[in-house]
């Protein structure tokens, strides 16, 4: 690698270093963005699943549903 770098002109060397910088920064940024979006999606899916089951985000029955259930048991 060092020999290859020695054969390059200064401008090419600068370009190669810049492209390496683009590579690591670009890959890191894309995985951060994609990772955050994936987590947000997972959370949104989880909330809508719980909502469909009549539970709040902590997995406990929603107040409305609880009231309804209590009402029906009293009857």
């Amino acid at each position: 690698m060092n020999n290859v770098m020695l054969l390059m002109t200064e401008a090419t060397k600068a370009n190669v270093l810049k492209s390496l910088e683009i590579m690591w920064k670009g890959l890191a940024a894309i995985f951060i963005v994609i990772g955050i979006i994936a987590v947000i999606t997972f959370i949104m899916n989880d909330i809508s699943t719980r909502k469909a089951q009549g539970k709040n985000i902590f997995g406990k029955p929603c107040a409305k549903k609880e009231k309804k259930e209590k009402g029906s048991s009293e009857e």
Binding site: T9, A14, S19, M23, L27, F31, T41
Partner: peptide, 25 residues
């Protein structure tokens, strides 16, 4: 599956490096 979409952009960065290696001229 989001992660796979991100990983499949790898070729872009390797190609930039290769094009830069061809030379500034």
């Amino acid at each position: 599956l989001f992660l796979l979409g991100g990983a499949a952009q790898f070729g872009i960065f390797v190609t930039i490096l290769l094009a830069a290696l061809i030379g500034d001229s």
